[in-house]
Amino acid sequence: MVINYTELKKNTIAFSKKVGSQIVDGGKKCWKFTKENPGIVIGTGIGIVAAVLVCREGYNYETTEVSEYNSIFLESEADSLFPSMNEIEKESELRNYPENRKSPVTHLYRSNKGDNFVRGGTEEDKRLFIEANKNLFE
């Protein structure tokens, strides 16, 4: 495939000009609407600020010093949405995993260095896989 860089440059510039002019036109329309309807814009802004202030009243903010990092973090009740490590450990203790789990299917794994390894299955499965695919390990 041959890339025509002059054509690519020309198309990129044309696309950029088109998008740029659309952004400028949109900005002009917004500015015109703001000038014609200042009450709506200011009222909406006040409403958003009031909503944010009302929503923040429900949170109980506390500062906690963490000795590891010698810094202060802001904790809130909103952090309870994310499980703590203790909750994760308790949850993992509740799972009933069988003693003898089925091992995954034997498959080839290639490391970043290009070496091939066999993963999954039992030792016997791995040995049989290597014997069947000797050319991959040479």
Rank of each mutant, 00 (worst) to 15 (best):
E124A: 14
K126E: 00
T6L: 08
S21G: 03
R110Q: 02
M1R: 09
N86C: 12
R95S: 09
R56A: 10
G45W: 12
P38I: 03
T34K: 08
S84Y: 01
E75L: 08
R110H: 00
G27Y: 15
S71N: 12
K17F: 14
T12K: 04
T63H: 03
N112E: 00
L74D: 10
L53N: 02
N37T: 08
E65D: 02
N37W: 04
I13Q: 01
H107K: 11
S92D: 03
K113M: 00
G45N: 13
N60G: 10
V105D: 03
E75Q: 03
L108V: 08
M1D: 10
T64F: 04
E62F: 10
S92I: 02
D125T: 08
R110I: 00
K18S: 05
E123M: 11
V54C: 04
S21R: 06
G114D: 01
F129V: 11
N37A: 05
I40Q: 10
E91F: 13
C30L: 13
V19D: 01
M85V: 14
T12W: 09
L136Q: 15
A51P: 05
S84W: 00
G121R: 09
S21Y: 03
T34C: 06
F73W: 05
K35M: 13
L8W: 03
G58F: 15
Y109Q: 00
N100K: 15
R110G: 00
G45Y: 11
W31T: 06
Y61V: 02
Y97H: 14
K29Q: 15
G120W: 15
N112T: 00
T12V: 06
I48H: 04
I13G: 01
N11P: 01
Y109H: 03
E68R: 04
A132K: 14
L108A: 04
K32R: 08
V24E: 03
V118P: 01
R56G: 07
A78L: 08
V41A: 13
Y69P: 06
E93D: 05
L136D: 07
E36G: 11
F33D: 02
Y61L: 04
Y97F: 15
K102E: 10
G114T: 00
